[in-house]
Design a protein around this nucleic acid. Sequence first.
DNA 1: TAATTTACTTGCAAATAGCAAGTGATTCGT
DNA 2: ACGAATCACTTGCTATTTGCAAGTAAATTA
Lengths: 127, 127
Amino acid sequence: MPKAPASKRALKAPPPPSRRSPCPVACALDLFGDRWTLLVIRDLMLGRSRFKDFVSSPEGIPTNILSDRLERLLEGGIVCQIPATDGGKRMAYELTEKGEALRPILKSMRDWGLSWEAGTKVLLQPV
Amino acid sequence: MPKAPASKRALKAPPPPSRRSPCPVACALDLFGDRWTLLVIRDLMLGRSRFKDFVSSPEGIPTNILSDRLERLLEGGIVCQIPATDGGKRMAYELTEKGEALRPILKSMRDWGLSWEAGTKVLLQPV
DNA sequence: TAATTTACTTGCAAATAGCAAGTGATTCGT
DNA sequence: ACGAATCACTTGCTATTTGCAAGTAAATTA
């Protein structure tokens, strides 16, 4: 088996009920308002599901950050773990219904970037 | 006049063309992938336009962070400055067309939060 | 014109990010 | 079945960023 999930000491996850406000946007940003989380979710939406897949995305997320973000996404109910399809003992990550519901956000971000940021283009293809 | 805009030393803005990848999502996150920027944009979309308005939003953004974020948004072409409507000498911030184009992102984030995060509710009303 | 408000800056401690180098299971190749 | 490679992480360390509290100076108000 792989090692136990990310320890609490490595990169601290904030105690869950410390919302800055009841605003739905603020609350969403408490969950994924950082430079990396939505890129992992992007990868999941394109069918990537394994730790190594996220690591090998073009942005090069550091592995300790990835561990922390996956842990937060699990705690937030946005992803879950399932047995990998290769029949082995390793696990894969998958979006929950709550995570799938983020798709319009990612789509509108992609559209905005393509429209307003010169030189951007879709490079990752669905699996 | 108020003091000159935020200095470069206070909180460093990254050299513009250091994109992590040409992905439109990654590029968008380079501009507003943090806990505060989209809250300022939310306020702007609701008609707030002055420094003090952003400071008095319920999340309580620290003023040094706000200065830094406004500076980045100006550099990124997402906001601009215009004379405040009160006829005085002070300036107000306003979304550019590029900034206005972020509206679908904010809307989908609000909808997601309202649907999936218990206890969230719209609290800020348009001016 | 004195007091208040606005729009910031500065200094500092604490938290977070990110790099490089492990570590120990699992899987692959032969 | 055994060694080598891969996978999914953790650890240690430094650099950067955050966020609080306390200024500061111009603009506005009384």
